[in-house]
């Protein structure tokens, strides 16, 4: 979606401000919000693409004014509510008010290390061949879906070069909508800085994105 999360090239945000000796978590609630989010992925009620969309799918003013884990937490509440796992009156009450919906599995302490170690690889098998090879000239399509996409606005319509064929990977644009994994060939595409930012752009700059085949046409 063309939301506030699509920030590449936006002006006005000011300097980057690293915090010296920054702690991993800035508050106790952040730790819990983090852990709840990871643990609630285990029942398999949503996938990572759905959770990314749930985070970005809000009023831009809200997105920009919320902290990182506030966004994570709000998205978690939304996804739980959408799937009838937890309802509004329960979050207000702070207690379960009705029986849980049955779920396939939950994360046990003994499984944590293994689950983290296994992660969620997105590469899939295929007999198809990639449409593009390294060195090919491509153009990023001008798509503007209201739903989840990973093609940032700053590259849409611009010409670039295939740097690398990454592999055949789950396609977030489908997966986030519950339309299936629909894996596609995934490429690293490089764009010249001046192609993206105009004649006054940094001549030493090259920017790449990882783009799935449906985002690209031959240039």
């Amino acid at each position: 979606m063309n939301g506030a999360q699509d920030m590449g090239g936006v002006h006005g945000f000011g300097p980057v401000e690293p915090e010296p000796n920054e702690p991993v978590f800035h508050a106790g609630w952040e730790k819990r919000a983090f852990a709840l989010t990871l643990a609630m992925a285990m029942p398999g009620q949503w996938n990572i693409d759905m959770s990314r969309f749930a985070r970005e799918n809000r009023d831009p003013g809200e997105y920009l004014s919320m902290s990182y884990y506030q966004i994570w937490f709000a998205a978690l509440e939304t996804m739980l509510k959408e799937r009838d796992l937890v309802s509004d009156d329960e979050t207000v009450a702070g207690h379960a008010l009705r029986e849980p919906k049955p779920v396939a599995r939950i994360l046990s302490p003994g499984a944590v290390a293994q689950v983290l170690y296994r992660g969620g690889p997105t590469e899939r098998e295929t007999n198809t061949t990639p449409a593009f090879k390294p060195g090919d000239h491509v153009r990023a399509k001008n798509i503007n879906p209201r739903t989840h996409t990973r093609l940032p606005r700053y590259v849409r319509g611009h010409a670039g070069t295939i740097e690398r064929v990454i592999g055949f990977h789950v396609f977030p644009d489908s997966n986030a909508q519950g339309a299936g994994e629909n894996p596609q060939w995934l490429y690293t595409v490089c764009f010249d800085g001046r192609e993206l930012w105009g004649a006054d752009g940094d001549p030493t700059l090259t920017v790449s994105v990882d783009a799935w085949e449906p985002y690209l046409v031959p240039a």
Binding site: L38, G94, I106
Partner: peptide, 26 residues
């Protein structure tokens, strides 16, 4: 903080999360 705590309570009561697993993740 209140909302996070509330949700953790609800999820634990429903058996969707195990607090020991949460601690390990952290």
């Amino acid at each position: 903080q209140l909302r996070v705590r509330a949700l953790e309570t609800v999820l634990t009561e429903k058996g969707y999360v195990d607090p020991a697993a949460l601690d390990l993740l952290i």
